[in-house]
Amino acid sequence: MAELAAQGKSPEVLFWVGCAGSFDDRAKKITKAFVQLLIKADISFAVLGPEESCTGDPAKRAGNEFLFQMQAMTNIEVLNGYGINTIVTTCPHCFNTLKNEYPDLGGTYDVMHHTQFLKQLLDTGKLKVSGGSFKGKRITFHDPCYLGRANNEYEAPRAVLAKLESELIEMKSCKEKGLCCGAGGAQMFKDAEPGNKEINIERTEQALETKPDIIAAGCPFCNTMMRDGIKNKEQEGNIAVLDVAELLNQAQDL
């Protein structure tokens, strides 16, 4: 973004990569897939790179409002400094925080989750799905809490998946009733409290009931959780856990 600004240019959209998308090896693949899609669709976009910092979501959910607001205000200063209007992000947690919690602190942007953005690109014809590399594949979509219940978006990721000509099978609890993967509310960064099962195992079992070839996710943390679940069930050879962006990007490769 700094380079673009130095040239006096401003991008159509800012891609907020998020911590997972920047540092987690698995999530980086989602970042790269999404960037490739943006390039294919000829979208002028930028990332903040080293100027991006945690949105503060895990701190806020852990109860540390001070740290959250410090992060938020620093980020808002950067975003407003560059005159950013539109943000797209591959992380529903960043999406929720940027969209709903930044306005109160002076940061108001048009924020989209990448599945919403990809749906737009498909709808306007900027991206086209050619061929049916996923034809006949059974895909089940795991709703991220922070996209679904938190922000009422259930259709965009499904609309993108529908373009793949695959067979979309719903789990018994989906959409409003979707079961959490277990990572939200800062749980990603700590061990679970004592219980009789891990939440991601419970959710993986629900996913396995649909006998899927692919579990589609829309959140880097859900992705990790579901992948761990699949490993635990020793199904990693049979079932892939892929982000909606990765699926679309693979379909584009044909």
């Binding site: 990569v17 911590c19 998308g21 920047s22 540092f23 987690d24 980086k28 970042t31 790269k32 990332v47 903040l48 790179g49 080293p50 991006e52 910092s53 945690c54 895990p58 990603m188 960064f189």
Partner: peptide, 13 residues
């Protein structure tokens, strides 16, 4: 970031 990574490496990908 919630993990101990260098902020400068955010764009390593």
């Amino acid at each position: 970031a919630p993990w101990p990574f260098n902020q400068q490496d955010r764009i390593a990908w």
